[in-house]
Each structure stands twice: as structure tokens, then as C-alpha cells.
Design a protein around this nucleic acid. Structure first.
Lengths: 327, 327
DNA sequence: ATGAAAGCGCTAACAA
DNA sequence: TTGTTAGCGCTTTCAT
């Protein structure tokens, strides 16, 4: 319609190369007029897969504000780089994780950002993808032994800081509500907790360590266990936001007062943490930054697949409010 | 490799047609062995676009728990139907909305689920898409005059119920913190508020109506305005969860007590509503169901493009806790 | 029940 | 600077 070949149209649309200005203008005019839209799917058949302008994001729970912030960070950076993102929600199921990754591969996405479901379920599958050179970056959780980019927070430090804060407030019997056994961040937060105790000369007591699987109901049950102990803790460190909500509900249920009868520190500073009474002391995890950094890392890797992998570790920060007992 | 033509492989992989069992088995064996994966992109070049197995979701704020629940609902239903979803986050920007919709079209998605940014910014654009037969369903917000599927909640009823509850608790000066001017749900919630007042013979006072743009900071400012009134309200209805958080922070800041000095009802029952002191009374919006229904509607439409459009309206529910003053 | 072959819309190499 | 053309991997008619 513009009296030029398809090749020229392609050149104009890709803003590239040496096309005479007048020709480009003529093409663009027709493009506008007929509302022509490049077929991105056909394009992806020719272009190398790192140029697909689509990236995948596989997360474990889009309903969790922490992860939805991660998603927002990914989204924003992707948009700024003209990429679009396919979000998949695994609900911690390795089967769904496997299915989604295969789908993304079939979709010829340029790469993927992944919060792995468990430490090992799909290990050999991941390994194969890495060997095939599929660009991936792990976020929030790592898988040991896999040489790929990752962005995570210093969970050990987070666990340490929270526990130390509680110790500073005079507590000696400090319980912890852990997440899912076997996940790197669970292990790390727990080991930070232990380090703080040991440093203060407090013995680590097994019965004070409980697990809540990173969900609200689990947190409530774990807190219930802890509070049912004959010699119950005077303070508890809950290692994720959903479980913290469960903990709080259990505490209210038993009509105990925070922080006098039971001090509490959470993990993940959610918008609502400040609105609680008393306002919740938490370890702040920069979810948005986590996502944004992961997306930047992935997009960088697309253009330089050979550069050596890197692990970015963001430091968590204590947000001291009132639930831990000292201002 | 299996000694058959590509046509036969295609038939086997699509589980269709008349292929001899033994042939199919032979093909599948090779597929497994060589880890063959169908190229979904190439497939989409041949198949009609309603069979692409990809749908788009364009929402305004993935960081808002309400919308992330919507996304989760969409995701789950999509997965069950073997679809994958591309999520785009507009941040209420009509430009981004326009860009994303074009991208989705370029990606040849089967259809899209959309939370429109404003009542009219891209109206004619949407209209064009509808005329071209692009399957869309609006969720949460509607655009007047567009004949397409929608899933929303009865916002007017939500506004009415909340306000009536406050009236029942004996309040006569009731403020409202509205969302973004011009959005259908803002208007509807406000009109429910007015109806309840009128029904009770209470005059609608302009100074008691403020706007907070559906964000936390806006909610805080709106609440501040209301509380600065010489004759301030004794109760406030905040029309979304983020603004409610802002309201609460402002109330704490002024050291007022809920519900004695100021009663409060929120909109959107978030996980944390119950953990506040006093627990927050809210109008519960079924975000997950909203998303799930929208996805079901869209997927149905893909197979029957001609059936008449429908509007699904879900009813909100009051969750009475303590912040409104009566148990 | 299976194969041969056309063609989806694009980009890139080569030619002019 | 622009055009010609091959071919990306698949599905689908039409033959066989």
C-alpha cells in the first residue's frame, strides 16, 4: 500500500537501518491509516529467542503481598525495557512449576524469573535448562549448586537482627515460627536466630522452634503450640507476614497482650503493619526492589549471555515499632 | 526420527484424529526421548487466534491485595483450562493501558480481562476492539455504553449496607472517603451511601464527602480533612482497603479512639482487617471470585463468540466486627 | 491411516 | 537505499 516491499516496512517498524526519511514517513502514514499492528508472534519465529520481548515470572503465591510487590517490581522494569511479562502462580506445587516452565519455553520467552517452589523437586529439570542456556534468575529463594543469577535478601541477617532486638528487650525465652522446611530462606532465617541466641549465651531450645509453612493458618497453629508449652516463650519471632497475621489472631484469641505478655516481631513489612495496635516491629524485606533487580539482571543477561553469573543480596532492615516491647 | 511425517507428529501431539495406536506410541516415545517440545509460537501462526491458549490480564495495581486476588482467581481458572496469562499493570495510566492492549493484540492472545483505568480515556479504542471482535471482559469496573461481558460487584449495595450499618449504630454525621472521581465503582458506592442516608431521613452534606483516589496517602488526607471540620463526623465509611489504612493512621495520629470517638467501616475485607484493634468492620469484596468468574466468562466466549454478552454482578457482604461501634 | 506441500507474517542475507 | 527470497515450525487441506 505504501508502494514498498515488506522488507522496507520491517525496517521502518524496527526503527533501524538506512531507510530514506521520506520513505519511512510514507510507510508510517499507511501504518497509522490502516491501523496496522506488527504480528509479534510471527516476528518471534525469526528473531533469536533472547529478543522476544517477553519474559516469564513464576512465583509461588501472587496473593501474598510480598510476592505481588515482587511482581510489581518485575513489571515496572520490564515495561521500561519494552518487555511484557507472563506471570504464573505455582501455589508451591512443583508440578505446576514444571508445567509453567515448559509452557514458557514453548512460548519462546526470552527468559524467566523464578521463585522456586522447593529446594529440589525440579532440580534436574532446572539443571537441564541452565545447560541449554535458557536465561533464568532466581529470586527470593536460591537453589544450592545451580550456577545462575539470583537476587535474594540476607535472610540470615534478618533472622539475626530480629532475634537480637528481642534479646535487647530483655527476653530469654524466644520462640520462632519458621516457614517451609528445606527452603533456603527458612533455613537462613533460623540460623540467624540461632546465631543471635548463641552470641548472647542463650541456649537454643528445640521446643521453641515451630513451623508454620508460610501460611496464615500454619502461623496460627505454630503460635498455638508455642503458647501451649508449660514454659512458654515471652517473645516470638514470626518469619513471614501471613504467619504473623495467624500469630496475632491466636494471641488475641487467648486474650494475651502484646508486648507485655508476649512480644512479637514479624518479617516482611506490609502496609498494615503500622496500623496494628500496637504497631508491629518487623524486618523489612524490599519486595519491589527484589523484583526490579531480578528483572534488570535478566534483561542484562539477554544481551550478554556469557558474562559470569551474579548473586545480588539485598540487606533487610529493622523497622522498630512497639510490638517488640522497647521503643 | 519416528519414521513418520511431520503431519502425523502434529496429529499425535494434538491428541486428535485417526492415528494408529502403534504409530502414536512410537511418536510419543521419540518425543519423550529427545525431550521434544511443541513450539507454541509457530503453532499460533496457523491456529485461529481464539485457540492461542494465552489470555491477557490488564489491571491497575498488582500491588493492591484486592487486585492480586483478582489475578489469582484469573490464574487458577486459566490454568485449569490450560491457558497461560500475561499480566500487565497499568498503574491507572491510560497510556500504559493503551500500550499493553496493543502488545497483547500483537501477541495474538485469545482475549483479555481488563480493569479499565478511567471511564473514558481509551473509550474509542475499546470500541474499535469490540467491533473487531476481540474478546474482552471488564472486571471490577464497567465502561458505560460498551456492549461487552463484565464481572463486577454491586457497589451501590455495598455503599448502602455500610452506611446503613453506621446509621443503625446511631450515627447521624457520617463521612465518606471516595475513590477516584468518574470511575463507575466510586460513583456507585457514593450513591449507595446517599440512598442509605436519604432513607433514614438524614441530609446529605457535601463537606462530609471527600476523595482519596484509592491510595493510602489519599485516604489519610481525606480523613484529615474530615476530622478538621468544625463539626466533624462521628463515623466514616472508607471505600477501599488502601485508603482505610490511611484513615486509620490519621486517626491514630490524632489519638482518637475507634469506635468511640470515630467509628469506621472499610471496603475490601483484607486478611489484616481482623488483626486490627478493634477488628475492622468491612464490606467484603470477593476479589478471587471476581477474577475466576471473569476468566470463565472469557474462556467460554472464546468458543462461542456470538452468544450475547452478559454482566455478572456479585453481591458484597458485610463483615461486622468492632470498628463500627456495635457488635 | 498417513504423507506431501502450501502458507501463516515476519526478518535477514544477499542482490541490485 | 531498497527489493527478492528463503525459511522459522507448525497445521491443514488434499492425495493416496
Amino acid at each position: 500500500m505504501a508502494g514498498v516491499s515488506t522488507a522496507t516496512v520491517s525496517r521502518v517498524l524496527n526503527g533501524s537501518d538506512k531507510v530514506r526519511e521520506s520513505t519511512a514517513a510514507r510507510v508510517m502514514k499507511v501504518v497509522e491509516e490502516m491501523n496496522y499492528r506488527l504480528d509479534h508472534v510471527a516476528r518471534r519465529m525469526k528473531v533469536k529467542s533472547t529478543d522476544s520481548l517477553v519474559i516469564g515470572l513464576v512465583i509461588t503465591d501472587i496473593g501474598n503481598p510480598f510476592f505481588s510487590n515482587v511482581a510489581k517490581g518485575v513489571e515496572d522494569v520490564a515495561f521500561r525495557n519494552k518487555h511484557i511479562v507472563m506471570i504464573c502462580n505455582t501455589n508451591e506445587s512443583p508440578e505446576k512449576e514444571n508445567f509453567f516452565l515448559n509452557s514458557l519455553l514453548s512460548e519462546k520467552v526470552s527468559g524467566a524469573i523464578i521463585v522456586p517452589t522447593t529446594g529440589n523437586g525440579n532440580y534436574s529439570f532446572f539443571e537441564g535448562l541452565v545447560q541449554d542456556g535458557f536465561p533464568m534468575v532466581m529470586v527470593d529463594r536460591k537453589i544450592e549448586g545451580l550456577n545462575i543469577d539470583s537476587v535474594s535478601i540476607n535472610n540470615e541477617l534478618g533472622g539475626y537482627l530480629a532475634t537480637r532486638k528481642l534479646i535487647e528487650s530483655g527476653h530469654k525465652r524466644i520462640g520462632i515460627v519458621c516457614g517451609i522446611k528445606g527452603l533456603s530462606n527458612t533455613t537462613e532465617r533460623l540460623s540467624g536466630y540461632k546465631r543471635a541466641l548463641q552470641e548472647a549465651g542463650i541456649e537454643v531450645t528445640d521446643s521453641l522452634i515451630s513451623y508454620g509453612n508460610y501460611i496464615e493458618e500454619g502461623g496460627r497453629e505454630a503460635m498455638s503450640e508455642l503458647l501451649s508449652l508449660k514454659n512458654r516463650p515471652t517473645a516470638v519471632f514470626s518469619t513471614n507476614n501471613l504467619m504473623t497475621l495467624g500469630c496475632i489472631k491466636e494471641i488475641y484469641h487467648r486474650k494475651l497482650s502484646i508486648p507485655d505478655e508476649i512480644a512479637l516481631i514479624g518479617f516482611d513489612d506490609s502496609t498494615w503493619a503500622e496500623a496494628l495496635i500496637p504497631p508491629l516491629t518487623t524486618v523489612k524485606q524490599p519486595g519491589y526492589e527484589l523484583g526490579a533487580n531480578a528483572a534488570e539482571l535478566l534483561i542484562k543477561r539477554l544481551s550478554s549471555p556469557m558474562s559470569s553469573t551474579m548473586n545480588i543480596v539485598l540487606n533487610p532492615e529493622m523497622v522498630v515499632r512497639e510490638s517488640c516491647g522497647v521503643k
